[in-house]
Design a protein around this nucleic acid. Structure first.
Lengths: 201, 201
DNA sequence: GCTAGCCCATGACATTTGTCATCGAAAGAC
DNA sequence: GTCTTTCGATGACAAATGTCATGGGCTAGC
């Protein structure tokens, strides 16, 4: 019997996925978490065999949870499911020790199969996502550029970004200009869109 | 027995919800659709009692499907489930004849209960969403302002927006300025964010 | 020890954006 | 028939943004 921890902030989806996994004879959902923090404390207490984690959750996101889990509970294999599969997310997830990565567009038996695969030590990444990730290449942005671009994502003026990043306005504009150049965008807002699409921020 | 049509582009979610609804004795999922078009043709062929439709789908979106359904099949009650419950979406959905509106954060038995409620002629809107929708008020944007703001959402410069909207650049800037004022934003990009958050665009 | 790359900053410049006043045409409300 | 609103446009001005050159401090690689 494979013991599973399920983490997803959407109650309906979580419950539904649990119902679905429960249909399999060899799978058992032993815990359901609605946030990253909950997932971690439940995992520590119950030590599941496999953790199925949603990528986007309020608070601690899926990749961070996966990283902590790989560190603290090496016996617990982690996999990510997500609605928005960006190349960058996949890379970060793999770097965090995630063994499986699936978009939510896959069918139910793929999910069950992948749970079994990674439980027995294998890995599985959605083929289409894998192809995109390979062709996409790494992020050209330096850490600081990514930071600043992220702050710019909300549409804040340079002044505010500068305050929030504790930088001078001129420096912010330099970073943004550089990010715009690297993404091939016409302005910072298009740069944000492109970086988002690639999962760079 | 209540016969249900399920439409959601995410295979896993759709299958999981179907598994969950199948656990109820009086509910039966008779069709599953991955797109709006599919949902419509399946509904015409099978005439379900209740259609449970995801708001965001590729191609025809949930509200449009609901509108067509209410026109063509008055016997079929429709309800919307969604990950992103914006006040504006709720209003558009109700205007389209939708009887139930739920975020995906609700629990499974709420879903089943609401299916039964709307099947017996009732209505159900998530209380929190309802409160937001009421306090939010209607969109203050004129149709044209909303158009232009939508084009601006991709981060394109005024020149391009003007070309795509067949307007003069000056006019575009006037509309944007007006939209910025109405949303209380500091610039057009924040205006886009706000309007998105309210479901105005 | 040199070099390269990232980090942070300043100053100068051209371009883009945001704002405002003003105008005319068309449509709907009263 | 007049009033109001929306749509569309122009011109002008101030403010924000994008770009570039330049410089110094720091770290890592060779």
């Amino acid at each position: 019997m494979i013991r599973i921890l399920l983490a997803d902030d959407e109650h309906l989806i979580r419950g539904a996925m649990a119902a679905l996994l429960a249909l399999e004879d060899d799978l058992e959902v032993v815990a359901q978490a609605a946030t990253g923090e909950q997932a971690l404390s439940m995992a520590r207490a119950l030590r599941p065999d496999v953790a199925v984690i949603d990528l986007q959750m309020p608070g601690v996101d899926g990749v961070s949870v996966a990283r902590t889990l790989t560190d603290e509970l090496p016996g617990c294999r982690t996999m990510i499911v997500t609605s928005h599969g960006r190349p960058g997310h996949l890379k970060r997830a793999l770097a965090a020790g995630v063994r499986g990565f699936l978009p939510k567009t896959v069918s139910a038996d793929v999910l069950a199969t992948v749970v079994r695969t990674i439980h027995s030590g294998g890995r599985y990444v959605d083929p289409q996502l894998a192809a995109e990730a390979i062709s996409a290449g790494d992020s050209p942005l330096t850490p600081r550029e990514a930071d600043v671009l992220e702050l710019a994502a909300e549409g804040a003026p340079v002044e505010e970004i500068a305050r929030r990043a504790a930088l001078s306005p001129g420096t912010v504009r330099n970073y943004l200009s550089s990010a715009v150049g690297k993404t091939g965008a016409a302005n910072r807002h298009e740069a944000v869109r492109i970086a988002r699409g690639q999962g760079w921020i």
